[in-house]
Amino acid sequence: MSIQNKNSGNKKTVKRKEPLISIENLEVKFINQDATIHAVNGVDINLDKGKVLTILGESGSGKSVTMRSILRLLPPKASLSGSIVLDGKNIIDMSQDQLSSMRGHEVSMIFQEPMVAFDPVYKVGSQIAETVVRHLGTSFNEGLARAKELFDLVQIPSAKSRLSAYPHELSGGMRQRAMIALALACSPKLLLADEPTTALDATVQIQILLLLRELQRELGMSIIFVTHDVGVATEIADELAVMYAGKIVEIGNVNNVIKKPAHPYTRGLLSSTVNSESKGKRLEVIGGSPPDMSKLFEGCAFSPRCNKVLEHCWGQKPTVKSLSINQRASCFNI
């Protein structure tokens, strides 16, 4: 989503920049024999160059599937529709060759579990070098030199000796840094980060978040960062999107969404999240259970749990309403 700079002098002359990535009406279904899972149900995202968009949502809300759609890393049984345009090219129409030259080059991804990104039987340094050789056509030695540069960039101490370590020989935090180095090997325009700090201890998590923030600023790349943790989202996001049942229900500048949540789900999620002010008070909870993704909802999927539900919420889909140029939500109550 693009938010115009409030401070720019003459509004009329401000031309809307082309976003780096523009996703329109993305829908992803998994068709199984017994049921169809409606994982993503109409996601729209516009992200500018050099911005961090965080997608916040509970498990099963469709965050990972959205990310994997961008890289077209979904299994064959997945049916995907809508458009994903990166720098003018529609990813949905790309051939396998075009996809493999895009992955790890223009767009790369980091995960919760770094062992997914690395092959356990090769040294981390040579795996990074191989990636550089494959995408940039350098020699292996140039690739290794780049790997050393990247290890310094992600602040791995004694970089040189760590390059010849096998993935399992690194500590949790170092492995996460090495995976970030691998993802940055070819200077991607867009980094997809799928809960990269979720499995880490608190003191290591904050190190990785601060590192990502610093790298993003230095390299000027864009990041889509997925998390279920409000605190993590708050630390990293420029813009925050809240996802429920495969839809973005609210999106806006992180400060607005956290301080003045508009959608009843966003409000409920924030009031359910224990923070330093919660002590001594009963938590205000969202009733009920997360939605069954094998059912396609006619109206708003949050209706069964919503404390503001209206008659027509059950049968009609709410449209996107702007609260300000910095915040939008899909809810009939707004």
Partner: peptide
């Protein structure tokens, strides 16, 4: 190291 819940008061330095 606890993440901030206020976007205007983010963690600035690594505690450990």
């Amino acid at each position: 190291a606890m993440p901030s819940m206020d976007p205007k008061k983010r963690t600035e330095a690594v505690p450990l």
